[in-house]
Simulated scan of single mutants.
Amino acid sequence: MSIRKLTESDLEAVSALCISAFMAAVAPSLSPQGVATFTQIAAPDSFAKRMAGDNLILVFVQENQVRGVIELKEGRHVAMLFVDPQQQSRGIGRQLVAAALAHARSEVVTVSASLTSVAAYERYGFSRAGEISESAGLVYQPMTITLSA
């Protein structure tokens, strides 16, 4: 197993993993607008555009298969974190968070956590920071983690 930067050859697999995990865990609680918004964000071409920008996207690879992904936007915001539903509760999310936070360029890192992922982020050391909100149909809990220097 390894954690490495996303490559163009990973785009289809990462998109499929994110959409699969999202549909299983998050989509049932959202409006059709929220599902459509996420599907657009997780499309391969959307990942490619963000990969070319100031977003660090890391993948967890095991047995030549992408098993997880994390995206750190502008070195200060976790924009995506998904683990293959068949591979959850094996420490992949924790390893991805640690790897991404090692690249943080801010003392405080934020995440807009889906409501189903709040407990996981709390286990990773994040704290709730504000009220539950909604944007383009996506419902989320703002959370932060303060990194030690």
Rank of each mutant, 00 (worst) to 15 (best):
S31H: 01
Q33S: 05
Q33D: 07
G34L: 01
G34R: 00
A36F: 05
T37V: 01
F38M: 01
F38D: 00
T39D: 09
T39R: 12
T39P: 02
Q40V: 03
A42N: 01
P44I: 07
P44N: 09
D45W: 11
S46P: 02
S46C: 06
F47Q: 07
F47C: 10
A48F: 06
K49G: 04
R50L: 01
R50S: 03
M51N: 06
A52E: 11
G53M: 11
D54N: 15
D54F: 08
N55L: 09
N55E: 15
L56D: 14
L56Q: 11
L56R: 14
L56M: 11
I57W: 13
I57C: 13
I57V: 15
L58G: 02
L58R: 01
F60T: 05
F60Y: 15
V61D: 10
Q62Y: 07
Q62D: 12
E63T: 13
E63L: 10
N64V: 06
Q65L: 10
Q65Y: 12
V66I: 14
R67K: 15
G68K: 08
V69I: 06
V69A: 11
V69D: 05
I70R: 04
I70M: 03
E71D: 14
E71G: 15
E71F: 04
K73I: 00
K73E: 13
G75F: 03
G75T: 04
R76C: 15
H77R: 14
H77I: 05
V78D: 04
M80E: 07
M80C: 12
